[in-house]
Simulated scan of single mutants.
Amino acid sequence: MAGCISVRGTPSSLSFRCSSFVSPALSLQLSRPQRVHLTPRPLVVCPLAKRICQMTGKKRNNGYKVSFSNHRTKKLQQVNLQHKRLWWEEGKRFVKMRISAKALKTIDRKGLQQVAKDNGIDLNKF
């Protein structure tokens, strides 16, 4: 057995043998690792931002991608969301929202206060 490493008994005693000379087995004493006791910390999960318009509540739509051969595969049609900073005239401040492009067009037409009132949104929370 040339260059053989054999483990006897516990993992802490290793014996090495070499074929070039005959000698008693060399044993290497390894210290056992210390156990560290840690108190488990609670798992903190950061919620991902949902792709929902904060003004109108629009969400993704389930649809089909239809090929030329009329083979249908399912797909999700996401909302066109934009991070916008809008001036709120009645509150005399900017409001940061994540709203859809459709809601932006409606805000341009009606105004921010009227669209928020129609959808039951409190702009003081933004």
Rank of each mutant, 00 (worst) to 15 (best):
I5R: 15
S6Y: 11
S6K: 13
R8Q: 14
R8N: 10
R8E: 04
G9S: 07
P11G: 14
P11Y: 09
S13I: 12
L14H: 15
L14P: 08
L14N: 15
S15W: 02
S15R: 12
S15Y: 04
F16A: 07
F16Q: 07
R17Y: 10
C18M: 07
C18D: 09
S19F: 00
S20A: 08
S23N: 10
P24C: 05
P24F: 01
P24V: 05
A25P: 06
L30V: 13
S31P: 07
S31C: 12
S31G: 14
R32W: 02
P33K: 09
P33Q: 09
Q34C: 05
R35C: 08
H37E: 10
H37Y: 05
L38H: 09
L38R: 10
L38V: 05
L38W: 07
L38S: 04
L38P: 02
P40E: 11
P40H: 13
P40M: 14
R41G: 00
R41T: 02
P42Y: 08
P42D: 00
P42M: 05
P42I: 10
L43E: 03
L43D: 00
L43H: 13
V44I: 13
V45D: 11
C46E: 11
P47H: 10
K50Y: 04
I52Y: 05
C53F: 00
C53G: 01
Q54P: 04
Q54C: 03
M55N: 00
M55S: 01
T56G: 09
T56C: 12
K58L: 03
K59C: 07
K59G: 05
R60A: 12
G63T: 09
Y64N: 15
Y64K: 11
Y64R: 14
V66E: 14
F68N: 15
H71E: 13
T73A: 08
T73V: 06
T73D: 06
K74A: 09
K75C: 08
K75L: 11
L76G: 13
L76S: 13
L76H: 13
Q77R: 08
Q77N: 15
V79E: 00
N80H: 08
N80D: 14
H83W: 13
K84C: 13
K84R: 11
K84M: 10
R85C: 01
L86W: 02
L86R: 04
W87N: 01
W87S: 01
E89R: 11
E89I: 14
E89A: 10
E90H: 04
E90D: 06
G91N: 12
K92V: 15
K92F: 10
K92I: 14
K92N: 13
R93Y: 00
F94W: 10
V95R: 05
V95L: 02
K96W: 06
K96A: 07
K96L: 08
R98C: 02
R98V: 02
R98F: 00
I99G: 02
I99N: 02
S100D: 04
S100R: 01
S100L: 04
S100P: 01
K102E: 09
K102H: 12
A103I: 04
L104Y: 00
L104V: 02
K105A: 05
T106W: 02
T106D: 08
I107E: 03
I107P: 00
D108C: 12
D108R: 11
D108H: 13
D108Q: 14
K110M: 10
G111D: 03
G111R: 05
G111K: 06
Q113M: 08
Q114G: 07
V115Q: 05
V115K: 09
A116E: 03
K117W: 06
N119Y: 08
